[in-house]
Write a protein that binds this DNA or RNA. Structure first.
Lengths: 205, 205
DNA sequence: GTCTATAGATGGATAGAC
DNA sequence: GTCTATCCATCTATAGAC
């Protein structure tokens, strides 16, 4: 029994109305394939095959391939920002920074494909789409930069340069995405601890 | 006057023997275009147009597109490793680490396209080529990990985890490639200083 | 909502003239 | 060494049947 057979009571794999299933399935397949092989290297036929439909059917759910990519990236960044806004906590600069570091690392572990896509496929966006995505990415970066600047101002942190430290930290934390697989000797909680440990000393807190 | 006119004394743009010029020109054009738009998104015709020849002529210099990519990545990593071996210096763990940090940041600033290509296009390599490149990448990572492990052993560094710190540092330092443009308020020497400052505190040296 | 079929463009790579 | 010409595969996207 798969999701489809639950819907119509048979093991049908052809024809019928499955908009509620096919739409998300396309997005999931596209996300996985784009993250694995790259946007330009993945064909609409491959995505369709993964979902179990023909290529033409994809165009009932997206006007074109570019929009499919853009929607995946936009949704990811909006979800990331929204998740951070409800997670952020702490009153002191150090507490706020810790909440950001743990959130960022944890989120990057949980949503590997979306995170990877969002920073690997920027160059495959049209100029208009790129501008929209960059605005969202920048808003997220500013969240960290604001914490660092406040800590520097209050004397809680001693940073050689707030802007460069922001970029250095983002790079360091995002890097977890490139090596962590979840099947190693360390679990998610331990990774978060280690990254926070490194960060704390880096900002001299 | 361009390089070609110097060679044969006329402003010729067609026919003639230019193996010594065309070969490197193809590699430079491919490196730039692959780095900017991605391997899969760049056509052999685009590369040829950039060089000033027709697509067919490229096949006098590379058996196929995949080999062109592989050679660029392999050359980069071999050059990187060789450059590091002649640059590495210092006797104490802290001195060795400083030499690595400054080398890595400086090299990433100087060879932006090659560096970017080497970590963005791994997924477009055939399995055999991927394995060869991964061996080289790993050898470079081990250089840093060895320094950190030695410092930890000697009590010069206090790291929560040598392996994770290696990956965190590589991510942090490599990140300079994604934002530094050379036309900002900071020069190369200052960037190296800042990254070393952050690193030194991170390892508790 | 999905399929078959296809238009129209573009891709990598090769053959043979010069 | 390069060009012209081309083969053949593949791609995105659409039209029309069911």
């Amino acid at each position: 029994m798969n999701a489809r057979s639950v819907t119509n009571g048979v093991m049908a794999r052809k024809a019928g109305s499955h908009a509620d299933i096919t739409g998300p399935a396309i997005r999931e397949a596209a996300l996985r394939l784009f993250a694995r092989s790259g946007y330009a290297a993945v064909s609409m036929r491959q995505i369709a095959a993964e979902v179990g439909v023909r290529a033409g059917a994809l165009y009932l759910y997206t006007p074109d391939k570019q929009t499919l990519l853009f929607d995946l990236m936009q949704d990811h960044l909006e979800t990331l920002l929204a998740a951070w806004k409800v997670t952020k906590s702490g009153t002191s600069p150090a507490e706020r920074l810790q909440s950001f570091v743990r959130f960022h690392v944890g989120y990057h572990i949980d949503r590997r494909d979306a995170v990877f896509l969002a920073y690997m496929e920027l160059r495959n966006l049209t100029p208009e789409n790129f501008a929209a995505i960059e605005t969202l990415r920048s808003a997220y970066e500013v969240e960290l930069e604001t914490i660092l600047a406040a800590g520097q101002e209050a004397g809680a942190f001693r940073l050689p340069d707030v802007r460069v430290t922001t970029m250095a930290l983002i790079g360091m934390l995002t890097g977890v995405n490139t090596w962590f697989r979840g099947d190693g000797r360390l679990d998610r909680e331990r990774i978060e601890q280690i990254y926070w440990n490194l960060t704390r000393r880096m900002v001299h807190a």
